[in-house]
């Protein structure tokens, strides 16, 4: 198994890398190089930070083209994590209007709701989609670690599982080979390790 973790200069990818190695993945390459991406069995798109800046960093490296080639043309499985998940969507209103990679129909807007504190930080429970592959082997409302101020919603059936904080939003989606999680599996203890294992084995 060869997994490429996309490097575009945003945030801490060390814990993702070490959790994949911990799970026994033979080769974990941190890269933004086209050849590495096209040779990968699976791709992880991480991300911490602001959407607009992330899009600029992605374009600087031509990653939108390389990722489209690998994911849309070659059908390689991709898992977006946190901001990485939001980037797989259509657009975000964070820091002005910005377009995403448009691999799924999801729109990112600010979290809102009466009496809630923002950012949404900590473990929260997931309402799991019954057809989910990502949550295989986990209990019915598993806890995962969130830390974010913007949320994705979708009008399409993108295989979403949900979380409620202020309002109901996409905690994860799994649409054929394109998957994303708003939370951080690499920071979610045993639950997160199991989810990553499911992505490795079931996608």
């Amino acid at each position: 198994m060869n997994i490429v973790v996309i490097d575009y200069g945003m945030g801490n990818i060390r814990s993702i890398q070490s959790s994949l190695l911990y799970l026994g993945v033979k080769s974990v390459i941190v890269s933004s190089d086209r050849n590495d991406i096209l040779k990968a069995d699976k791709i992880i798109l991480p991300g911490v930070g602001a959407f607009g800046e992330a899009v600029r960093e992605i374009k600087k490296r031509n990653l939108e083209k390389h990722l489209a080639e690998a994911v849309l043309k070659d059908g390689k499985p991709i898992l977006g994590i946190c901001l990485g998940m939001q980037l797989l969507g259509l657009s975000s209103e964070e820091g002005g209007f910005n377009k995403g990679l448009n691999f799924v129909n999801g729109v990112v807007t600010k979290l809102y709701g009466e009496g809630i504190k923002i950012p949404h930080v900590g473990f929260n429970q997931i309402q799991v989609n019954e057809n989910s592959r990502l949550y295989n082997g986990l209990n019915s409302e598993p806890d995962f670690y969130f830390t974010h101020s913007f949320k994705m919603t979708s009008e399409d059936d993108i295989g979403a599982s949900h979380c409620v904080y202020g309002s109901r939003f996409v905690a994860s989606f799994e649409n054929n080979n394109v998957a994303g999680v708003q939370f951080h599996p690499e920071l979610s203890q045993n639950n997160g390790l199991r989810l990553l294992k499911n992505f490795i084995e079931r996608f």
């Binding site: 799970l23 473990f123 082997g137 986990l138 209990n139 806890d143 203890q189 045993n190 390790l193 294992k197």
Partner: peptide, 9 residues
């Protein structure tokens, strides 16, 4: 109200 991590990895 604190998290449970009871998955078997």
């Amino acid at each position: 109200n604190i998290a449970n991590w009871n998955a078997n990895s």
